[in-house]
Amino acid sequence: MNKEGFRQQMKNSPRFKRLLDYLIMNQRDARPRWYIRLLAPLYQHRGRGSKIYWSVRMDTPPYRKFSLGRHSVVESYTCVNNAVGDVVIGDYTRIGIHNTIIGPVTIGSHVNLAQGITVTALNHNFEDKNKRIDEQGVSTKPVVIGDDVWIGANAVILPGVTIGKHAVVAAGAVVTTDVPENTVVGGVPAKVIKKL
Results as ranks from 00 to 15, higher is better:
Asn26Ile: 08
Pro61Arg: 03
Lys65Asn: 04
Asp134Thr: 12
Pro41Ile: 08
Asn154Pro: 02
Ala190Val: 07
Thr106Asn: 06
Val84Glu: 08
Arg31Gly: 03
Gly108Thr: 05
Asp21Ala: 10
Val144Pro: 01
Val80Phe: 00
Thr162Asp: 05
Leu19Arg: 13
Ile193Ser: 11
Pro61Cys: 07
Ala30Phe: 07
Gly187His: 13
Val143Asn: 00
His166Tyr: 12
Val73Asn: 11
Arg57Gly: 05
Val174Tyr: 05
Gln9Leu: 05
Met58Leu: 14
Gly187Pro: 09
Gly96Val: 09
Tyr53Trp: 11
Lys191Cys: 10
Ala155Arg: 01
Ile97Phe: 12
Pro180Met: 09
Arg46Gly: 04
Ala167Ile: 06
Pro61Trp: 04
His45Tyr: 15
Gly5Gln: 14
Arg46Tyr: 10
Val74Gln: 01
Gly108Pro: 02
Met58Ile: 09
Gly152Met: 06
Asn81Thr: 06
Lys65Asp: 08
His71Thr: 12
His166Lys: 15
Thr162Ala: 11
Trp34Leu: 13
Gly47Lys: 12
Lys165Trp: 11
Gly164Glu: 04
Gly49Asn: 02
Leu158Trp: 05
Leu39Asp: 01
Val179Trp: 02
Glu181Arg: 11
Ala170Glu: 12
His110Ala: 09
Arg18Met: 14
Pro61Gly: 03
Arg132Asn: 10
Met58Thr: 05
Ala173His: 04
Gly5Phe: 11
Arg46Leu: 12
Gly187Ile: 13
Ser55Ala: 15
His45Phe: 13
Pro142His: 05
Thr120Met: 04
Thr120Gly: 04
Asp59Thr: 01
Ser67Ile: 07
Val175Glu: 00
Pro159Thr: 05
His110Pro: 03
Ile117Gln: 05
Asn12Gln: 15
Lys141Gln: 13
Leu20Phe: 10
Phe126Tyr: 15
Arg28Lys: 15
Val179Arg: 00
Ala167Phe: 03
Ile89Glu: 01
Pro159Gln: 05
Val56Lys: 03
Ser139Tyr: 12
Val161Phe: 02
Pro14Cys: 10
Ile107Asp: 00
His45Val: 15
Ala173Asn: 04
Ile24Asp: 02
Gly96Trp: 06
Asp86Cys: 01
Gly69Ala: 15
Asp91Ala: 11
His166Asn: 15
Val188Leu: 11
Ala83His: 01
Cys79Phe: 03
Glu181Ser: 13
Gly164Thr: 06
Ile89Val: 10
Ala30Asn: 11
Thr177Arg: 14
Leu23Glu: 07
Phe126Glu: 10
Arg46Thr: 08
Pro142Ala: 07
Leu39His: 03
Leu20Met: 10
Ile107Ser: 00
Pro159Val: 02
Asn81Glu: 04
Leu122Arg: 02
Lys11Thr: 08
Arg31Tyr: 07
Gly103Val: 02
Asp147Met: 07
Val111Tyr: 00
Gly49Arg: 03
Gly187Trp: 11
Ile36Ser: 10
Arg48Pro: 15
Lys51Asp: 13
Thr78Tyr: 01
Asn125Ala: 09
Gly49Ile: 04
Thr100Tyr: 02
Met58Ala: 10
Pro189Ala: 12
Val161His: 02
Gln136Asn: 12
Asp128Trp: 08
Tyr22Ser: 09
Ile102Val: 14
Glu75Tyr: 12
Asn99Asp: 14
Phe66Trp: 06
Arg46Lys: 13
Leu158Glu: 09
Lys11Gly: 06
Gln27Ala: 13
Phe66Gln: 01
Ala190His: 03
Arg33Leu: 03
Pro159Tyr: 05
Gly69Gln: 08
Gly164Val: 07
Thr100Met: 05
Glu4Cys: 07
